[in-house]
Amino acid sequence: MQIFVKTLTGKTITLEVEPSDTIENVKAKIQDKEGIPPDQQRLIFAGKQLEDGRTLSDYNIQKDSTLHLVLR
């Protein structure tokens, strides 16, 4: 499925993911596309910070959802 990741600069990254993918996995995909190390990434969805060990389906993230990427 496709999800979107919006950065603070207003750029939107499109990712191909599975509901069973972990947040860690998603961060690795963002690193592949953007070169941002996962340890600098914070992903936010519906006002919640997403934890590495959980999956997209744990957070009820569905296709065409938009996550927000904050760098630390």
Rank of each mutant, 00 (worst) to 15 (best):
39 D>F: 05
9 T>Y: 04
47 G>D: 12
72 R>F: 04
21 D>K: 04
55 T>Q: 13
27 K>R: 12
15 L>D: 00
72 R>G: 07
12 T>D: 04
36 I>S: 06
21 D>Q: 08
18 E>P: 07
30 I>E: 00
8 L>D: 09
60 N>E: 15
2 Q>K: 10
16 E>S: 07
24 E>M: 13
12 T>Q: 06
60 N>F: 07
30 I>V: 08
69 L>N: 01
24 E>W: 04
71 L>M: 05
57 S>I: 08
24 E>T: 05
38 P>Y: 13
50 L>H: 00
57 S>T: 07
60 N>Y: 14
4 F>Q: 03
4 F>G: 12
33 K>R: 04
49 Q>W: 14
52 D>T: 08
71 L>Y: 04
27 K>P: 00
33 K>P: 05
60 N>W: 10
34 E>H: 06
47 G>E: 07
6 K>W: 11
62 Q>G: 13
35 G>T: 09
55 T>I: 10
72 R>W: 14
54 R>L: 03
44 I>T: 13
52 D>F: 06
21 D>Y: 13
67 L>I: 08
53 G>M: 05
71 L>R: 11
36 I>N: 06
62 Q>L: 13
11 K>N: 05
22 T>Q: 10
61 I>R: 00
35 G>R: 09
15 L>T: 02
12 T>I: 06
50 L>M: 08
10 G>D: 08
8 L>H: 04
69 L>E: 01
6 K>F: 11
11 K>T: 14
43 L>I: 14
5 V>Q: 00
37 P>A: 04
22 T>N: 08
20 S>Q: 12
14 T>Y: 10
17 V>D: 01
15 L>N: 00
20 S>K: 11
29 K>S: 09
42 R>V: 08
29 K>Y: 12
16 E>H: 11
25 N>R: 13
21 D>W: 03
12 T>E: 03
39 D>M: 05
27 K>L: 13
66 T>M: 10
9 T>M: 12
30 I>A: 02
61 I>F: 14
62 Q>W: 11
45 F>R: 03
25 N>K: 08
70 V>Q: 02
72 R>N: 04
48 K>D: 06
18 E>H: 12
46 A>L: 11
68 H>P: 01
55 T>H: 07
16 E>G: 09
72 R>T: 11
40 Q>E: 12
67 L>M: 09
59 Y>D: 02
59 Y>F: 08
51 E>Y: 02
32 D>F: 03
42 R>Q: 13
49 Q>A: 12
7 T>G: 03
38 P>Q: 14
52 D>V: 15
26 V>M: 05
17 V>Y: 14
32 D>R: 03
32 D>N: 13
27 K>E: 01
19 P>E: 15
52 D>A: 09
31 Q>R: 13
62 Q>H: 07
1 M>W: 10
71 L>N: 08
22 T>P: 10
48 K>S: 07
47 G>M: 07
8 L>A: 07
52 D>L: 06
58 D>N: 11
14 T>A: 04
1 M>S: 06
16 E>V: 07
35 G>D: 10
54 R>V: 13
53 G>E: 08
36 I>T: 15
66 T>I: 04
13 I>K: 02
24 E>N: 02
41 Q>I: 07
11 K>Q: 04
54 R>A: 15
24 E>Y: 10
61 I>V: 04
16 E>L: 14
11 K>D: 10
48 K>Y: 12
31 Q>N: 11
41 Q>G: 11
50 L>T: 07
68 H>I: 03
19 P>K: 12
36 I>F: 15
69 L>M: 09
46 A>H: 15
63 K>R: 15
7 T>H: 03
61 I>L: 04
29 K>W: 10
66 T>S: 05
63 K>T: 08
44 I>N: 07
53 G>W: 10
50 L>Y: 01
71 L>G: 11
47 G>T: 13
72 R>Y: 05
13 I>N: 02
58 D>V: 09
46 A>P: 01
72 R>V: 10
63 K>L: 13
64 D>T: 14
19 P>D: 11
29 K>N: 13
34 E>N: 14
41 Q>P: 02
23 I>R: 01
53 G>Y: 06
18 E>R: 14
5 V>A: 04
40 Q>L: 03
60 N>H: 15
6 K>Q: 13
8 L>N: 12
26 V>Q: 00
3 I>R: 00
14 T>F: 09
4 F>R: 07
46 A>S: 05
50 L>K: 00
70 V>E: 03
47 G>Q: 07
1 M>R: 03
22 T>M: 08
19 P>G: 12
23 I>N: 02
23 I>V: 04
67 L>G: 01
56 L>N: 01
5 V>W: 01
41 Q>K: 02
31 Q>F: 09
59 Y>L: 09
24 E>V: 11
27 K>N: 02
28 A>D: 08
46 A>G: 14
7 T>Q: 10
41 Q>V: 03
22 T>Y: 11
3 I>Y: 01
10 G>Q: 15
65 S>R: 09
42 R>T: 08
56 L>P: 01
54 R>H: 11
32 D>K: 06
2 Q>R: 10
69 L>V: 03
36 I>G: 05
7 T>L: 15
9 T>D: 03
60 N>M: 04
14 T>M: 08
7 T>E: 04
42 R>K: 04
24 E>R: 10
21 D>I: 07
17 V>P: 02
55 T>D: 15
65 S>T: 07
21 D>L: 06
3 I>H: 00
43 L>A: 01
58 D>S: 05
33 K>A: 11
18 E>W: 07
39 D>E: 14
24 E>G: 09
71 L>Q: 03
62 Q>M: 11
23 I>H: 02
4 F>T: 04
42 R>S: 12
62 Q>Y: 09
27 K>Q: 03
49 Q>T: 12
50 L>N: 00
61 I>H: 00
57 S>A: 14
56 L>H: 00
14 T>E: 14
10 G>T: 06
71 L>H: 11
42 R>A: 09
9 T>I: 07
52 D>Y: 14
4 F>D: 10
39 D>Y: 11
38 P>T: 08
39 D>P: 14
36 I>W: 13
42 R>D: 06
46 A>D: 03
44 I>M: 08
50 L>F: 02
43 L>M: 09
46 A>T: 09
4 F>S: 15
72 R>P: 13
25 N>S: 09
24 E>Q: 10
54 R>I: 05
66 T>Y: 03
67 L>D: 01
18 E>L: 15
1 M>E: 12
33 K>H: 03
38 P>K: 11
12 T>F: 05
68 H>G: 08
15 L>W: 01
44 I>K: 13
52 D>K: 13
15 L>I: 10
60 N>S: 14
19 P>T: 13
34 E>V: 05
57 S>K: 15
58 D>H: 15
19 P>W: 03
47 G>P: 01
57 S>G: 10
10 G>V: 09
21 D>N: 04
68 H>N: 14
10 G>M: 10
27 K>D: 00
18 E>N: 15
59 Y>Q: 04
23 I>P: 15
18 E>G: 05
41 Q>F: 12
25 N>T: 14
69 L>D: 01
45 F>K: 02
48 K>E: 04
53 G>T: 10
23 I>M: 08
22 T>A: 13
25 N>P: 02
38 P>I: 08
40 Q>I: 04
22 T>I: 02
17 V>R: 00
70 V>H: 03
16 E>Y: 13
51 E>V: 15
44 I>L: 04
27 K>A: 02
